[in-house]
C-alpha cells in the first residue's frame, strides 16, 4: 500500500465533500466542548477541595497574628495552648467522636495553600505567618460537628471551628449538577455527531463508487479501499476535538484566569495547563467516535 496514494485519496475525498466535512468538524467540536466542560467542572471541584477536603470534616483554626476572636485575646496561640487542645482532643469525652486528627503547622498550611492557589496571583502576597495553624479532625460521624464546635470554640487559643463540608457542599452539588447537564447535552450532541459522520461517509462512498468499484475489480485489498473513508471521518473528528480543546484552554486562560480569579481571589481556579490535560482524552474520544461510526457505515454501504 502506498502512503502517498492513500493520502491523495483522502485529500480528494475531503475536497469533494467539503461542506459535510465542515459540519462534522463543527458537530464534534460542539459535542466535545460539552464533554470537556463537564471534565473542567470536575477538575475545578477537585481544585477547590484542596488538600484536606476528602480527609477531614472539621478544622479548628488556632489564633494567629491579627486574630480578633474572643479566644485570641492573648495573641497568637502558644505552644502550651496547642498542647492543651491536643490533650482535649485525646480525652475520652472528645475522642469517642473522633476517628483521627492531624496538626497542620503554619509551614504545612503554607505548603498546602501554595498547591491549591498555584494559579492565583494571591499566592505571592501570602507568607507562612499569615496562615493559621490548625487541627484537622476526621469525625466518626460528621453530623456530630456541633459537639466539637461547642467544646473548642471557647478554648483559649482557638480562633474558630469550621465545618468545611457544610461550607462547600452546596457549591459542589451545584457544580456537579452543571457538569451533569453538560454531559447530557454532550450525549445528545455525540449522537448527532455519530449520525452525521455516518451520513458523510455514506455520501463520500457514493460519490466515489466508480473508484471503489474499479479498486474492487483490480483486486485492491479491503484496507486500501476503506482506509481513505475512515481516515476522512477521523481527520474531521480530530480537527473538531482540537478546536474543543482550544476552546477549553481559552475559557481557562481568559475567563477563569483573567476575569474570575480577579473577582474571587480567595477561590482556587484550575490553570489553562490543566485543561490541556483533557485534550488527549477529547481527541481520543473523537477518533473512536469517527472510526467506529465510519467502519459500521462502510460495512453497510461499501462493498469490498
Amino acid at each position: 500500500m502506498r502512503l502517498a496514494f492513500v493520502l491523495s485519496e483522502i485529500g480528494s475525498g475531503l475536497r469533494r465533500n467539503l461542506s459535510m466535512v465542515i459540519s462534522v468538524i463543527l458537530v464534534t467540536f460542539v459535542s466535545l466542548t460539552f464533554v470537556g466542560a463537564a471534565g473542567m467542572l470536575q477538575l475545578q471541584i477537585n481544585q477547590m477541595k484542596g488538600y484536606w477536603y476528602d480527609k477531614v470534616q472539621v478544622a479548628i483554626f488556632l489564633c494567629s497574628d491579627g486574630s480578633t476572636a474572643p479566644g485570641c485575646a492573648t495573641g497568637p496561640a502558644t505552644r502550651e495552648q496547642e498542647d492543651n487542645l491536643r490533650k482535649l482532643l485525646q480525652s475520652p469525652a472528645v475522642a469517642q467522636y473522633v476517628n483521627d486528627f492531624q496538626y497542620e503547622s503554619k509551614t504545612d498550611a503554607y505548603k498546602h495553600f501554595k498547591e491549591q492557589f498555584a494559579n492565583s496571583p494571591i499566592v505571592d502576597s501570602v507568607t507562612p505567618d499569615q496562615l493559621p495553624a490548625s487541627f484537622r479532625i476526621n469525625m466518626k460521624d460528621p453530623e456530630k460537628y456541633e459537639i466539637i464546635s461547642e467544646t473548642f470554640s471557647s478554648q483559649a487559643g482557638v480562633e474558630t471551628v469550621i465545618d468545611q463540608r457544610q461550607l462547600l457542599e452546596r457549591l459542589f452539588s451545584a457544580m456537579n449538577a452543571a457538569s451533569l447537564v453538560a454531559v447530557s447535552i454532550a450525549g445528545v450532541m455525540i449522537i448527532c455527531a455519530i449520525l452525521l459522520i455516518a451520513t458523510t461517509i455514506r455520501l463520500s462512498a457514493f460519490s466515489r463508487r466508480r473508484e471503489t468499484g474499479i479498486m474492487r475489480l483490480v483486486g485492491a485489498s479491503k484496507m486500501v479501499i476503506q482506509l481513505p473513508f475512515i481516515l476522512e471521518g477521523v481527520i474531521a473528528a480530530v480537527i473538531g476535538a482540537a478546536l474543543a480543546s482550544g476552546t477549553l484552554w481559552a475559557v481557562a486562560h481568559f475567563f477563569l484566569g483573567g476575569v474570575m480569579s480577579k473577582q474571587y481571589p480567595d477561590t482556587a481556579f484550575i490553570s489553562p495547563g490543566q485543561t490541556l490535560m483533557l485534550a488527549p482524552a477529547l481527541i481520543g474520544l473523537g477518533v473512536v467516535l469517527a472510526g467506529v461510526s465510519s467502519l459500521l457505515t462502510l460495512r453497510r454501504y461499501l462493498r469490498v
Partner: peptide, 30 residues
C-alpha cells in the same frame, strides 16, 4: 481478482484522470 482482468461495455474509466492515471490507478491500489 488480481489474477483476472475485466472489461465492460461502458468502459468505466475515471473521468477526471488522464489515460496514464487511469491505467496507473490499477497498479497504485495494489
Amino acid at each position: 481478482r488480481r489474477g483476472i482482468g475485466v472489461v465492460f461495455q461502458d468502459f468505466r474509466l475515471l473521468p477526471q484522470k488522464s489515460v496514464f492515471a487511469n491505467v496507473a490507478f490499477a497498479m497504485q491500489v495494489i
